[in-house]
Amino acid sequence: MHPARKKRLILILLVLLGVGSAVALALTALRENINLFYTPTQIADGEAPQGARIRAGGMVVEGSVERSTDSLDVRFDVSDGAKAVTIAYSGILPDLFREGQGIVALGRINADGVLEADEVLAKHDEEYMPPEVAKAMNDAMANKAAQQPQAE
């Protein structure tokens, strides 16, 4: 390669390296602010700011959804596998909201440690499958569950 071209190429690579590390440092410093939501573990550890509007995200715990019979009030637990946080919400939930589904809720944590949400968003996972496959998988799991007590 021509020396002048080589020099220019090295210069470009150095500039890219410099800007790259600057951006990396900035993003590391802002790490907490870029996260869209806090996990229940982070909230339990006190990493989430107190009294401020925060987002909590995780899986809706199976069997935890309690709907009020005469209003749109709903309470449910959201877990990340380790810790859980209770969320109270009043309003229409997104179509994809169901037990076992990932969600993100925006609101304030009150004195009882319950997050009073004024917005609940459903989080979609990267799995896609036709309804028949999903049904077949559910049936298989149900069969397995039904057979287990007999085996004991």
Binding site: I34, L36, K123, E126, Y128, M129
Partner: peptide, 18 residues
């Protein structure tokens, strides 16, 4: 980061989740 957008469905190392 924790994002609302789901992770990649297609990766080079794993079978597609589809």
């Amino acid at each position: 980061w924790n994002t609302l957008h789901q992770p990649a469905t297609f990766t080079i190392t794993e079978k597609p989740a589809m």
